[in-house]
Design a protein around this nucleic acid. Sequence first.
RNA 1: CGGGGCGUAGCGCAGCCCGGUUAGCGCGCCUGCUUUGGGAGCAGGAGGUCGCCGGUUCGAAUCCGGCCGCCCCGACCA
Length: 423
Amino acid sequence: MAKGITKRSQDYSRWYQDIVLRAELADYAPVKGCMVIRPYGYAIWEKMQATLDARFKETGHVNAYFPLLIPEEFLRKEAEHVEGFSPECAVVTHAGGSKLEEPYVIRPTSETIIWSMYRKWIQSYRDLPLLINQWCNVMRWELRTRLFLRTTEFLWQEGHTAHATEKEAEAETRQMLEVYREFAEGTMAMPVIRGVKTEREKFAGALRTYTIEAMMQDRKALQAGTSHNLGQNFAKAFDVDFLDADGERKLVWASSWGVSTRLIGALIMAHSDDNGLVLPPRLAPIECVIVPIYRSDEEKSSVLEKANQVWKALSAKYSVKLDDRDQCKPGFKFSEWELKGVPVRIELGPRDVASGQVVLVRRDNGEKQSCALDSVVESVERALEEVQQGLYHRRWISGRATPAKLTVTMSSRNSSGTTAGSP
RNA sequence: CGGGGCGUAGCGCAGCCCGGUUAGCGCGCCUGCUUUGGGAGCAGGAGGUCGCCGGUUCGAAUCCGGCCGCCCCGACCA
């Protein structure tokens, strides 16, 4: 049915690539290991950002921006950190036409430059907690890359918090993991398992790394988000202390946490099928598409008139596309919007105009139903909700069905034990 | 870093083994007409430094040497 998409059963990895390229989510960039996130893919990221950012604000965080370039010596200040990140750092050695005295590292993560600033900003317990997030790009020189799942440069958010007590830092670390879990399950419709990374797999420089892992359709787990309790490691490395209420000078406690554009890869692998992308309504750039059907000019004008009414009614609440391209046949449009993962399609032809109905089709299961024109908004609302819930339950059930053999595809280090334990 | 594959029109490929008119095919694109409830048909048209450098030859997309790039699998990787 779908032209040019490899079947999952044939070659899962090719299928994944086909979806990304054909649905125009991303494309290969001229630079090895880098990708261009195309408008349709970026729109998904923007929706993810909007939802997460609102949650970060609700939990007391503020956004800021730190530089892309980090003095190389900063990385060296924390022993585990430098050991973990050095091999994958890109280093700038020349600028302004001459060799630099001190090379700069292109950030693989921002703990060091942020804590160099926190040292200036934190003096008293009254300055704590400090709860800052930043949305940015980072670069890690990976040997093997895959679109969205692991690219040399990627987009993410990184939260960096400073606290007066160990207990508070631990509570923050767990709270943010919970924010990620809610997002994955509620917004992405993707069930996750919470866990603690092993000593080998934890963040380089952390006391402890909590993770959410999602089950993909190839029965492999994917690391979807991590939250680190950094203890006092960075406070020690950057000499960040504060004067507490009891008059004592104490080291600051820290957390950091992040999710990246890898989530788009997770989203694809969680829900999509052999006909293309399948998107949960809460992240779909286009929630509903209207495909008009007509033969004669006469039919065209009456159908388009109704289609425009429907579009107008739905637009007040949803992101709706009226596909009135004259040069494409309806069948072509059906396939194309399925490929692009639009959750709900409305078909509207002469027969529907005559009977005061539209045909409503769900992307997740292909179910068609007729519904009355004058209650189309309610019908779409219900259908979108059903798709959102339906996707979650389908993933939940299939995740349940295959828990025995968990292997880990794209998370770090070894390939077992990643999901052990529970926070 | 190992193994494999690829590089010829925007995309996908054939041609190469066995050198020889003007380098083909499908899709897409442009124009026109007919079409339109599951990826339309016909006619006409535009589009090429055959990855790069060198060599062999009267003649190289094709043979030889070197280089570059990308993709896939594995190893590695918060």
